[in-house]
Design a protein around this nucleic acid. Structure first.
Length: 222
DNA sequence: TGCATGATGTTCT
DNA sequence: GAACATCATGCAC
């Protein structure tokens, strides 16, 4: 008795749809990681949809590989990948049944466990920067490759996603009332014209879109 | 305040 | 061998 409050994750059916439909509805939802050292929960403020094998920017575009195998599995699981030699990013698998849609979690605001999130991200001075970016979000939550394939729809799972219920006594910003904006995805060159990035208008944790120029390769003269 | 660049390793061609 | 769904830093103004 008197244990932690029961957690009701979002039902798996919610994810059994195209990522483009799921992504905007995930804004305002809460992802939380119950680690041995504590709990960190954050409200999602920025996501991107990746439309499986029809989307040139998707990791699943070229078919199933060892890395993206989780995307081809059942919906409601986490697809965690390692990139740029030092960062993790996390997606939530949608559709399923061999249709590898996914939603990339790009940013969120910490609503529980801020002390732990700050400890994990010593470089962040501002609270809004704790999970402002896909790799920062993973770092704040303590997500690494061991969470690849984790089920986020099970109450007992250390990593789960729940809808943001009404929160009496707070400002209660929710996706229902907040304005949702859309735009091009960040850091992808393929299908750059598709506005499949969704964020909560005005959320301080959302990083501004940087139309960064082409990355100049290191000039190597053999 | 804003941009240019190095760090660093896995994956795929 | 090259690309990569990035981040933090350093320097110019």
């Amino acid at each position: 008795m008197g244990g932690p409050a029961p957690v009701t994750p979002i039902p798996r059916d919610f994810f059994a749809r195209p990522a483009v439909d799921v992504a905007p509805e995930l804004l305002g939802a809460v992802i939380e990681h119950q680690a041995p050292e504590g709990l960190v929960a954050l409200r999602l403020t920025e996501v991107e949809a990746y439309a499986g094998q029809a989307d040139p920017a998707s990791h699943a575009y070229r078919g199933k590989t060892r890395r993206n195998a989780v995307m081809f599995g059942p919906p409601g699981h986490a697809y965690v990948y390692f990139t740029y030699g030092m960062h993790f990013c996390v997606n939530l698998v949608c559709l399923g049944e061999g249709r590898p849609d996914a939603v990339l979690l790009r940013a969120g605001e910490v609503i529980e466990g801020e002390a732990l999130a700050r400890a994990r991200r010593a470089t962040s001075r501002r609270a809004a920067d704790l999970a402002s970016g896909p790799a920062r979000l993973c770092q704040a939550l303590g997500i690494d490759s061991s969470f690849n394939g984790a089920d986020v729809c099970t109450a007992g799972s250390p990593l789960r996603v729940r809808a943001d219920g009404p929160r009496p006594g707070t400002t209660g910003r929710s996706a229902d009332k907040a304005k949702i904006a859309t735009g091009p995805r960040v850091g992808v060159t393929a299908a750059a014209e598709v506005p499949w990035r969704f964020w909560i208008e005005g959320a301080p944790s959302v990083s501004a879109y940087r139309p960064h120029g082409p990355r100049r390769r290191k000039l190597v003269t053999p």
